[in-house]
Computed example of a mutant assay.
Amino acid sequence: MGTERPATLHDVAREAGVSINTASRALNNKPYVSEATRKLVLKVARELDYRPNHLARSLRQSRTSTIGVVISDIVNPFFAEVVEGIEREAAARGYGIVLANIGHDASREMQVVQTLVDRQVDGVLISPSQPDPDSIEYLINRGVPYCLLGRVFERIPGPAVINDDRAGARMAVEYLLSRGHRRILFLNAAAYSSQARRRLEGYIDAHRQAGLPVDPGLILETDARMHGGYVAMQQALTNKAGFTAVFCFNDFVSFGVVQALRDAGLRIPDDVAVMGYDDVMVSQVVDPPLSTVRIAKTRLGQTACQLLIRILESGPQRRRKQEDKQMIDQDTQHTPVVLPPELVIRRSA
């Protein structure tokens, strides 16, 4: 028994009474097609159950319509929301994604990026874990477009979508100061991260604007995960630093802090107030619900994906000359897109 032949672009064009070129432009949301014609072609395509042949198109265009996405910690729900935004935008624009998790292992970052390039992804969205931008330089040298997620490198000013971390940290600490706290412990991430540096700047800004000195003994660097927050809080309690509030690099660190405070018999916020950063989904259901700084995570992913696709569809990226390590491809000279943060007050502070 034979099977019905799948509909082709030629079938759609014939049924709609337009040329193949017009049908293609309508289906791919290209300009120079009237809205009435576009709607007609889309209606016919649905009726014929037309499915574009992405493989054939990629062979013709030397593109795969795939975007590599490199994240540092798939366990952190922050990245789940970012990837949701990426996937939603990519699908709407006809792209698929290949997701790679580094797992906070900076040594794997280059390996993962090389694998994605070998698989011929059209571009890469990446949240770097390395202190140095080796993987970004590799992408530039290979002529692969990219966009950074949440972090920037000062010496390679490439396309990026970030949160206004300095403003977010300042808002959080200003709130804690307004509640009467004068000794605020700051559990920050590694200083090589642009996010950590900006949040430290915001912490300092808030103290200076209040006319208060900054005690270096209240600033600790920790692993930006739950266990890191737990260990850092145990250390701070052992050192008897005399703090009444804790500002954490992210919500995951805050969860570890809350557990350590409870294990020490301390009440939140009566004995110690806790402020997070990111506003991941579980922050509102933990006990007590976490006060935090909200990042528009889904929007961050969507915006980064839009920016990368704009680069992909604007023409081939000029490669940086291999022999001149100081010459940066002009197509990567972008001012980062900065998203505004929002302070969210719940019961923990």
Rank of each mutant, 00 (worst) to 15 (best):
S254F: 03
N163C: 14
V258H: 02
L212V: 00
V41C: 09
R262Y: 11
E15S: 11
E4W: 08
Q306Y: 08
E35F: 03
T298I: 05
P213W: 02
Q195R: 15
G150E: 01
E201L: 15
Y32P: 07
F153A: 10
P31R: 07
P336W: 01
V337S: 08
R51T: 15
G256D: 03
D251F: 00
F78Q: 00
A210E: 09
V285K: 04
R267A: 10
A16P: 10
R347S: 15
L218K: 01
V82C: 02
D105H: 08
V144A: 09
Q322L: 15
A169M: 09
E87M: 07
Y203E: 02
G202A: 08
S127R: 06
R347Q: 12
G68I: 02
A191V: 13
R25V: 10
L200A: 02
R25C: 04
C248Q: 05
V33H: 02
P288Q: 01
R183L: 02
R182G: 00
Q130N: 14
A91N: 11
S348V: 13
P341D: 04
P128Q: 01
A224M: 10
E221C: 08
E201F: 04
F186H: 14
V82E: 05
F153G: 08
R155L: 11
I309K: 04
L185C: 00
Y146T: 06
V152R: 05
N101H: 03
R60D: 12
V70R: 01
E87C: 05
Y230Q: 06
V337I: 15
I328G: 04
F249M: 04
A172T: 00
G276Q: 06
R319C: 13
S72M: 09
Y203F: 09
L9I: 14
V41Y: 01
I71T: 11
K30R: 15
Y277V: 09
P288C: 06
P31H: 02
V144K: 03
R166Q: 12
L177N: 07
V69C: 08
A224W: 05
A304H: 00
V124T: 06
D105I: 11
A236M: 07
L300D: 07
V69I: 10
S314H: 10
G168L: 05
H181D: 05
H181F: 06
Q317E: 15
R294H: 08
F247C: 07
E174R: 14
A16T: 08
K39E: 15
F247E: 09
G2N: 15
L55T: 14
D271Y: 06
